[in-house]
Design a protein around this nucleic acid. Structure first.
Lengths: 168, 168
DNA sequence: TATTGTTATACTCTATAACTATA
DNA sequence: TATAGTTATAGAGTATAACAATA
Protein backbone atom coordinates (compact mmCIF):
# COMPACT_ATOMS: atom_id res chain seq x y z
CA UNK A 1 0.00 0.00 0.00
CA UNK A 2 2.36 2.69 -1.20
CA UNK A 3 -0.46 5.07 -2.10
CA UNK A 4 -2.26 6.38 0.97
CA UNK A 5 -5.84 7.66 0.85
CA UNK A 6 -5.13 10.48 -1.55
CA UNK A 7 -8.64 10.60 -2.88
CA UNK A 8 -10.28 13.91 -2.11
CA UNK A 9 -7.11 15.85 -1.48
CA UNK A 10 -6.35 15.97 -5.18
CA UNK A 11 -7.77 19.46 -5.38
CA UNK A 12 -5.85 20.69 -2.34
CA UNK A 13 -2.20 20.41 -3.19
CA UNK A 14 -0.22 22.82 -1.06
CA UNK A 15 3.11 22.02 -2.69
CA UNK A 16 2.98 24.44 -5.62
CA UNK A 17 1.52 27.16 -3.41
CA UNK A 18 4.23 26.69 -0.83
CA UNK A 19 6.86 26.76 -3.54
CA UNK A 20 5.45 29.90 -5.06
CA UNK A 21 5.10 31.84 -1.83
CA UNK A 22 8.50 30.77 -0.59
CA UNK A 23 9.92 32.08 -3.82
CA UNK A 24 8.13 35.40 -3.42
CA UNK A 25 9.42 35.82 0.11
CA UNK A 26 12.91 34.77 -0.84
CA UNK A 27 13.11 37.23 -3.73
CA UNK A 28 12.22 40.06 -1.37
CA UNK A 29 14.42 38.72 1.38
CA UNK A 30 17.42 38.86 -0.92
CA UNK A 31 16.80 42.56 -1.38
CA UNK A 32 16.16 43.59 2.20
CA UNK A 33 19.08 41.52 3.51
CA UNK A 34 21.67 43.05 1.19
CA UNK A 35 22.39 45.99 3.53
CA UNK A 36 23.14 43.46 6.26
CA UNK A 37 25.45 41.43 4.06
CA UNK A 38 23.23 38.39 4.39
CA UNK A 39 21.29 36.12 2.08
CA UNK A 40 18.16 34.07 2.72
CA UNK A 41 19.96 30.84 3.56
CA UNK A 42 22.19 32.66 6.02
CA UNK A 43 19.07 33.74 7.81
CA UNK A 44 17.72 30.21 7.94
CA UNK A 45 21.01 28.87 9.28
CA UNK A 46 21.29 31.59 11.92
CA UNK A 47 17.70 30.95 12.97
CA UNK A 48 18.37 27.26 13.44
CA UNK A 49 21.58 27.91 15.34
CA UNK A 50 19.84 30.26 17.71
CA UNK A 51 17.13 27.69 18.31
CA UNK A 52 19.47 24.74 18.78
CA UNK A 53 22.02 26.69 20.75
CA UNK A 54 24.95 24.87 19.24
CA UNK A 55 25.32 21.73 17.18
CA UNK A 56 27.57 19.82 14.85
CA UNK A 57 27.68 20.63 11.18
CA UNK A 58 26.09 17.35 10.27
CA UNK A 59 23.27 18.03 12.65
CA UNK A 60 22.76 21.35 10.95
CA UNK A 61 22.84 19.67 7.56
CA UNK A 62 20.21 17.18 8.67
CA UNK A 63 17.95 19.89 10.04
CA UNK A 64 18.19 22.01 6.92
CA UNK A 65 18.12 18.95 4.67
CA UNK A 66 21.10 20.41 2.92
CA UNK A 67 24.15 18.57 1.74
CA UNK A 68 26.97 18.64 4.26
CA UNK A 69 29.36 20.07 1.72
CA UNK A 70 27.21 23.14 1.26
CA UNK A 71 27.09 23.67 5.00
CA UNK A 72 30.84 24.11 4.96
CA UNK A 73 30.77 27.01 2.54
CA UNK A 74 27.77 28.52 4.26
CA UNK A 75 29.47 28.44 7.66
CA UNK A 76 32.67 29.79 6.16
CA UNK A 77 30.80 32.87 5.04
CA UNK A 78 29.15 33.29 8.42
CA UNK A 79 32.45 32.74 10.20
CA UNK A 80 34.18 35.34 8.05
CA UNK A 81 31.55 37.82 9.19
CA UNK A 82 32.17 36.68 12.78
CA UNK A 83 28.52 35.69 13.07
CA UNK A 84 29.23 32.11 14.13
CA UNK A 85 32.15 30.31 15.73
CA UNK A 86 33.42 26.77 15.28
CA UNK A 87 35.11 24.93 18.12
CA UNK A 88 36.24 21.33 18.40
CA UNK A 89 34.07 19.08 20.48
CA UNK A 90 36.07 17.88 23.50
CA UNK A 91 34.20 14.58 23.45
CA UNK A 92 34.76 13.83 19.78
CA UNK A 93 37.48 15.87 18.18
CA UNK A 94 36.16 15.11 14.73
CA UNK A 95 33.21 17.33 15.40
CA UNK A 96 32.95 21.06 15.10
CA UNK A 97 30.45 22.59 17.46
CA UNK A 98 28.90 25.57 15.73
CA UNK A 99 27.50 28.43 17.76
CA UNK A 100 26.15 31.90 17.26
CA UNK A 101 28.35 34.77 18.34
CA UNK A 102 26.98 37.89 19.97
CA UNK A 103 27.42 39.71 16.69
CA UNK A 104 25.50 36.94 14.97
CA UNK A 105 22.66 37.12 17.45
CA UNK A 106 22.48 40.87 17.00
CA UNK A 107 22.53 40.74 13.22
CA UNK A 108 19.91 38.01 13.16
CA UNK A 109 17.67 40.29 15.16
CA UNK A 110 18.16 43.10 12.67
CA UNK A 111 17.54 40.73 9.80
CA UNK A 112 14.25 39.56 11.25
CA UNK A 113 13.21 43.14 11.61
CA UNK A 114 14.02 43.76 7.95
CA UNK A 115 12.17 40.62 6.94
CA UNK A 116 8.97 41.92 8.46
CA UNK A 117 8.59 44.41 5.65
CA UNK A 118 9.27 41.76 3.02
CA UNK A 119 6.72 39.40 4.49
CA UNK A 120 4.15 42.15 4.79
CA UNK A 121 4.36 42.49 1.04
CA UNK A 122 3.76 38.80 0.36
CA UNK A 123 1.19 38.16 3.06
CA UNK A 124 -0.66 41.37 2.42
CA UNK A 125 -3.90 39.49 1.80
CA UNK A 126 -3.82 37.97 5.28
CA UNK A 127 -4.82 39.83 8.40
CA UNK A 128 -2.82 39.59 11.59
CA UNK A 129 -4.79 36.66 13.00
CA UNK A 130 -4.41 34.71 9.76
CA UNK A 131 -0.67 35.32 9.72
CA UNK A 132 -0.43 33.99 13.24
CA UNK A 133 -2.39 30.91 12.19
CA UNK A 134 -0.14 30.42 9.21
CA UNK A 135 2.93 30.75 11.38
CA UNK A 136 1.57 28.27 13.89
CA UNK A 137 0.79 25.71 11.19
CA UNK A 138 4.14 26.12 9.47
CA UNK A 139 5.86 25.87 12.81
CA UNK A 140 4.05 22.70 13.74
CA UNK A 141 4.76 21.12 10.37
CA UNK A 142 8.43 22.07 10.50
CA UNK A 143 9.14 20.88 14.01
CA UNK A 144 6.97 17.77 13.85
CA UNK A 145 8.80 16.47 10.83
CA UNK A 146 12.14 16.73 12.53
CA UNK A 147 11.30 15.10 15.82
CA UNK A 148 11.35 11.38 14.85
CA UNK A 149 14.91 10.65 15.90
CA UNK A 150 15.13 13.20 18.68
CA UNK A 151 15.30 10.82 21.61
CA UNK A 152 17.96 8.69 20.01
CA UNK A 153 20.52 11.37 19.20
CA UNK A 154 21.84 13.68 21.94
CA UNK A 155 23.30 15.94 19.26
CA UNK A 156 19.94 17.66 19.32
CA UNK A 157 18.94 18.01 15.72
CA UNK A 158 15.29 18.46 16.55
CA UNK A 159 12.93 21.23 17.47
CA UNK A 160 15.02 23.62 15.48
CA UNK A 161 12.42 26.18 14.63
CA UNK A 162 10.35 25.41 17.67
CA UNK A 163 12.24 27.36 20.29
CA UNK A 164 11.71 30.61 18.46
CA UNK A 165 8.00 29.88 18.21
CA UNK A 166 5.39 30.68 20.79
CA UNK A 167 6.64 30.86 24.34
CA UNK A 168 4.69 33.77 25.75
CA UNK B 1 5.28 54.93 6.46
CA UNK B 2 7.75 52.43 5.09
CA UNK B 3 8.03 50.53 8.36
CA UNK B 4 4.68 49.19 9.49
CA UNK B 5 4.01 48.13 13.08
CA UNK B 6 6.57 45.33 13.09
CA UNK B 7 6.95 45.33 16.82
CA UNK B 8 5.57 42.14 18.26
CA UNK B 9 5.88 40.09 15.10
CA UNK B 10 9.62 39.87 15.48
CA UNK B 11 9.26 36.45 17.02
CA UNK B 12 6.88 35.23 14.34
CA UNK B 13 8.82 35.29 11.11
CA UNK B 14 7.26 32.87 8.67
CA UNK B 15 9.87 33.44 5.98
CA UNK B 16 12.48 30.91 7.11
CA UNK B 17 9.79 28.36 7.92
CA UNK B 18 8.22 28.78 4.53
CA UNK B 19 11.58 28.47 2.86
CA UNK B 20 12.44 25.35 4.80
CA UNK B 21 9.14 23.56 4.23
CA UNK B 22 9.06 24.47 0.56
CA UNK B 23 12.50 22.97 0.27
CA UNK B 24 11.39 19.78 1.96
CA UNK B 25 8.41 19.43 -0.34
CA UNK B 26 10.46 20.25 -3.40
CA UNK B 27 13.11 17.67 -2.60
CA UNK B 28 10.44 14.98 -2.36
CA UNK B 29 8.57 16.31 -5.36
CA UNK B 30 11.68 15.93 -7.49
CA UNK B 31 11.74 12.25 -6.62
CA UNK B 32 8.08 11.40 -7.09
CA UNK B 33 7.86 13.36 -10.34
CA UNK B 34 10.78 11.61 -12.01
CA UNK B 35 8.64 8.72 -13.30
CA UNK B 36 6.40 11.30 -14.97
CA UNK B 37 9.32 13.12 -16.55
CA UNK B 38 8.47 16.29 -14.67
CA UNK B 39 10.19 18.58 -12.23
CA UNK B 40 8.72 20.82 -9.53
CA UNK B 41 8.66 23.95 -11.64
CA UNK B 42 6.91 22.12 -14.43
CA UNK B 43 4.19 21.29 -11.98
CA UNK B 44 3.85 24.89 -10.90
CA UNK B 45 3.67 26.08 -14.48
CA UNK B 46 1.10 23.47 -15.46
CA UNK B 47 -0.97 24.36 -12.42
CA UNK B 48 -0.99 28.01 -13.36
CA UNK B 49 -1.82 27.25 -16.97
CA UNK B 50 -4.76 25.10 -15.96
CA UNK B 51 -6.02 27.85 -13.69
CA UNK B 52 -5.58 30.67 -16.19
CA UNK B 53 -6.75 28.65 -19.12
CA UNK B 54 -4.29 30.24 -21.52
CA UNK B 55 -2.07 33.27 -21.39
CA UNK B 56 0.96 34.97 -22.86
CA UNK B 57 4.44 33.99 -21.79
CA UNK B 58 4.98 37.33 -20.13
CA UNK B 59 1.81 36.90 -18.15
CA UNK B 60 3.09 33.55 -16.99
CA UNK B 61 6.42 35.08 -16.08
CA UNK B 62 4.68 37.76 -14.04
CA UNK B 63 2.53 35.25 -12.21
CA UNK B 64 5.43 33.00 -11.36
CA UNK B 65 7.72 35.95 -10.71
CA UNK B 66 10.24 34.26 -12.94
CA UNK B 67 12.43 35.87 -15.54
CA UNK B 68 10.89 35.75 -19.01
CA UNK B 69 13.96 34.09 -20.44
CA UNK B 70 13.56 31.13 -18.12
CA UNK B 71 9.93 30.76 -19.16
CA UNK B 72 11.11 30.11 -22.69
CA UNK B 73 13.20 27.12 -21.73
CA UNK B 74 10.57 25.85 -19.35
CA UNK B 75 7.89 25.97 -22.03
CA UNK B 76 10.22 24.39 -24.55
CA UNK B 77 10.52 21.38 -22.29
CA UNK B 78 6.78 21.18 -21.76
CA UNK B 79 6.15 21.62 -25.47
CA UNK B 80 8.58 18.83 -26.32
CA UNK B 81 6.53 16.55 -24.10
CA UNK B 82 3.39 17.80 -25.85
CA UNK B 83 2.03 19.00 -22.52
CA UNK B 84 1.46 22.57 -23.67
CA UNK B 85 0.95 24.26 -27.01
CA UNK B 86 1.97 27.70 -28.24
CA UNK B 87 -0.09 29.57 -30.80
CA UNK B 88 0.16 33.07 -32.12
CA UNK B 89 -2.36 35.52 -30.80
CA UNK B 90 -4.55 36.73 -33.70
CA UNK B 91 -4.91 40.11 -32.01
CA UNK B 92 -1.23 40.70 -31.42
CA UNK B 93 1.01 38.47 -33.43
CA UNK B 94 3.95 39.17 -31.14
CA UNK B 95 2.30 37.13 -28.45
CA UNK B 96 2.31 33.41 -27.98
CA UNK B 97 -0.79 32.12 -26.28
CA UNK B 98 0.21 29.17 -24.16
CA UNK B 99 -2.33 26.49 -23.34
CA UNK B 100 -2.47 23.09 -21.75
CA UNK B 101 -2.97 20.14 -24.06
CA UNK B 102 -5.11 17.18 -23.14
CA UNK B 103 -1.97 15.20 -22.45
CA UNK B 104 -0.78 18.02 -20.20
CA UNK B 105 -4.03 18.07 -18.28
CA UNK B 106 -3.86 14.35 -17.79
CA UNK B 107 -0.25 14.32 -16.68
CA UNK B 108 -0.86 17.19 -14.28
CA UNK B 109 -3.57 15.12 -12.69
CA UNK B 110 -1.23 12.19 -12.25
CA UNK B 111 1.45 14.48 -10.87
CA UNK B 112 -0.90 15.88 -8.25
CA UNK B 113 -1.74 12.39 -7.22
CA UNK B 114 1.96 11.57 -6.83
CA UNK B 115 2.51 14.76 -4.88
CA UNK B 116 0.01 13.70 -2.26
CA UNK B 117 2.44 11.13 -0.92
CA UNK B 118 5.29 13.64 -0.85
CA UNK B 119 3.22 16.18 1.03
CA UNK B 120 2.01 13.57 3.48
CA UNK B 121 5.60 13.08 4.46
CA UNK B 122 6.27 16.77 5.10
CA UNK B 123 2.96 17.65 6.67
CA UNK B 124 2.82 14.51 8.78
CA UNK B 125 2.53 16.55 11.96
CA UNK B 126 -0.65 18.20 10.75
CA UNK B 127 -4.03 16.51 10.81
CA UNK B 128 -6.44 16.78 7.92
CA UNK B 129 -8.21 19.86 9.24
CA UNK B 130 -4.93 21.66 9.80
CA UNK B 131 -3.78 20.85 6.28
CA UNK B 132 -6.98 22.29 4.91
CA UNK B 133 -6.42 25.42 6.98
CA UNK B 134 -2.88 25.69 5.74
CA UNK B 135 -4.01 25.27 2.17
CA UNK B 136 -6.66 27.91 2.58
CA UNK B 137 -4.20 30.40 4.06
CA UNK B 138 -1.56 29.77 1.42
CA UNK B 139 -4.19 30.04 -1.25
CA UNK B 140 -5.45 33.34 0.06
CA UNK B 141 -1.95 34.74 0.36
CA UNK B 142 -1.00 33.62 -3.14
CA UNK B 143 -4.05 34.91 -4.94
CA UNK B 144 -4.40 38.08 -2.92
CA UNK B 145 -0.91 39.22 -3.75
CA UNK B 146 -1.49 38.87 -7.47
CA UNK B 147 -4.80 40.63 -7.78
CA UNK B 148 -3.70 44.30 -7.64
CA UNK B 149 -3.52 44.90 -11.39
CA UNK B 150 -6.21 42.42 -12.38
CA UNK B 151 -8.82 44.89 -13.55
CA UNK B 152 -6.36 46.84 -15.68
CA UNK B 153 -4.94 44.01 -17.77
CA UNK B 154 -7.25 41.73 -19.75
CA UNK B 155 -4.33 39.34 -20.26
CA UNK B 156 -5.48 37.78 -17.02
CA UNK B 157 -2.34 37.38 -14.98
CA UNK B 158 -4.27 37.17 -11.75
CA UNK B 159 -6.07 34.56 -9.71
CA UNK B 160 -3.66 31.95 -10.94
CA UNK B 161 -3.86 29.56 -8.06
CA UNK B 162 -7.34 30.60 -7.11
CA UNK B 163 -9.34 28.62 -9.63
CA UNK B 164 -7.90 25.36 -8.37
CA UNK B 165 -8.78 26.32 -4.84
CA UNK B 166 -12.08 25.70 -3.14
CA UNK B 167 -14.99 25.24 -5.46
CA UNK B 168 -16.88 22.39 -3.87
C1' DT C 1 10.21 53.52 -30.65
C1' DA C 2 8.16 49.95 -27.55
C1' DT C 3 6.94 45.15 -26.75
C1' DT C 4 7.04 39.80 -27.18
C1' DG C 5 9.71 36.23 -27.56
C1' DT C 6 14.30 34.23 -28.35
C1' DT C 7 19.32 33.16 -27.92
C1' DA C 8 23.89 33.42 -25.75
C1' DT C 9 26.29 33.94 -21.67
C1' DA C 10 27.73 34.38 -16.90
C1' DC C 11 26.66 33.72 -12.12
C1' DT C 12 24.79 31.25 -8.21
C1' DC C 13 23.07 27.10 -5.95
C1' DT C 14 23.41 22.30 -5.19
C1' DA C 15 25.13 17.60 -5.40
C1' DT C 16 28.88 13.89 -6.19
C1' DA C 17 33.42 12.11 -5.34
C1' DA C 18 37.84 12.02 -3.36
C1' DC C 19 40.76 13.52 0.58
C1' DT C 20 42.30 14.45 5.74
C1' DA C 21 41.73 13.80 10.65
C1' DT C 22 39.87 11.48 14.22
C1' DA C 23 37.37 7.40 16.33
C1' DT D 1 36.67 0.36 9.07
C1' DA D 2 33.53 4.21 9.93
C1' DT D 3 32.57 9.11 10.78
C1' DA D 4 33.10 14.59 10.69
C1' DG D 5 34.68 17.86 8.05
C1' DT D 6 36.93 19.67 3.88
C1' DT D 7 38.04 20.44 -1.07
C1' DA D 8 37.40 20.15 -6.12
C1' DT D 9 34.37 19.72 -9.66
C1' DA D 10 30.24 19.18 -12.46
C1' DG D 11 25.30 19.93 -13.09
C1' DA D 12 21.02 22.59 -12.61
C1' DG D 13 18.69 27.10 -11.77
C1' DT D 14 18.59 31.94 -12.55
C1' DA D 15 19.57 36.55 -14.29
C1' DT D 16 21.65 40.00 -17.75
C1' DA D 17 22.36 41.56 -22.44
C1' DA D 18 21.79 41.54 -27.29
C1' DC D 19 18.82 40.18 -31.17
C1' DA D 20 14.45 39.26 -34.41
C1' DA D 21 9.64 39.97 -35.28
C1' DT D 22 5.66 42.72 -34.64
C1' DA D 23 3.06 46.75 -33.04
Amino acid sequence: MTSPPAADRQSHRSGPLLDHLARRVRLRAETVLVPLGLRPRHLVALTVLRAQGGCSQQSLAATLEMDGTNIVGLLNELETGDLIARRRSPEDRRRHIVELTLAGTDLLCQAECAMAAAEDEVFGALDQAERESLYALLSKAATGSEIPCAAADPTAESAAFCAAADHD
